[in-house]
């Protein structure tokens, strides 16, 4: 565990907490894409299949449980909690899951490190995580009015990806045999998807103005 990996995990955790805070205390999920949240449930469910079979550390297992639990509860709130569900932008959030999932399934079957069940599922989760933010970015583009918490949520998620890239660079130079091309490329693609959002986020922060995306 290095400082970049820890910072990445902590920003990831903070992003989830910010979103839960918005949903649980303000009882609003306005501007939040249910499609993206459902894709994250699938990402964590397929990636952490090993939770009972491979033990790395208490830290790892605990974080896996937190990410599984929080993603499930966010989706539950958005679908079944009456007050929260009422604030959901259903008409704007129209991205099709299969449009993103099918290519990821095919790609995971074709390109993986090892052809075992766990490894293919893990690889699928990496590919799907890379594009899972797309429905959220499309929703932002459509609604254009972004409250502070939603903006912070996406900012923290992007930060998590950025720290993971620093972590990989650090590990590549400090650990022998640490080479994971699939993880790196899908992680890089994922981070690049945030670039546009980051640009406008910093612009609004610098000008001390509310975040607004161009039409």
């Amino acid at each position: 565990m290095n400082i970049f990996r820890l910072a990445g995990d902590m920003t990831h955790l903070a992003s989830v907490l910010v979103l839960l805070l918005k949903i649980h205390t303000i009882k609003s999920c306005a501007g939040v894409s249910l499609k993206t949240q459902e894709l994250y449930v699938i990402v964590f469910a397929t990636r952490y299949l090993d939770i009972f079979t491979s033990f790395v550390s208490i830290y790892n297992s605990l974080m896996k449980l937190i990410f599984l639990g929080s993603s499930f509860s966010i989706v539950w709130y958005m679908r079944y909690h009456k007050a929260v569900h009422r604030t959901y932008d259903r008409e704007q959030d129209t991205f099709r899951h299969w449009f993103l999932m099918l290519p990821c399934i095919l790609l995971a079957l074709l390109i993986h490190e090892k052809f075992t069940f766990f490894e293919v599922m893990w690889t699928f989760s990496l590919y799907l995580e890379a594009v899972a933010i797309l429905p959220q970015l499309v929703l932002l583009q459509r609604t254009r009015n972004i409250d502070n918490l939603t903006g912070q949520y996406i900012f923290l998620l992007g930060g998590y990806r950025g720290f993971y890239i620093l972590n990989w660079i650090y590990r590549y130079f400090t650990e022998p045999h640490y080479v994971h091309w699939i993880t790196w490329i899908s992680g890089l693609v994922q981070t690049l998807l945030y670039a546009d959002f980051f640009y406008y986020y910093f612009l609004s922060w610098k000008n001390n103005k509310k975040l607004q995306l161009p039409a």
Binding site: T53, S54, F67, T116, F118, E119, Y164, N167, T183
Partner: peptide, 10 residues
């Protein structure tokens, strides 16, 4: 071995 699953990241 073949079935070794070595992912230590989240």
């Amino acid at each position: 071995d073949e079935d070794y699953f070595d992912h230590d990241e989240l």
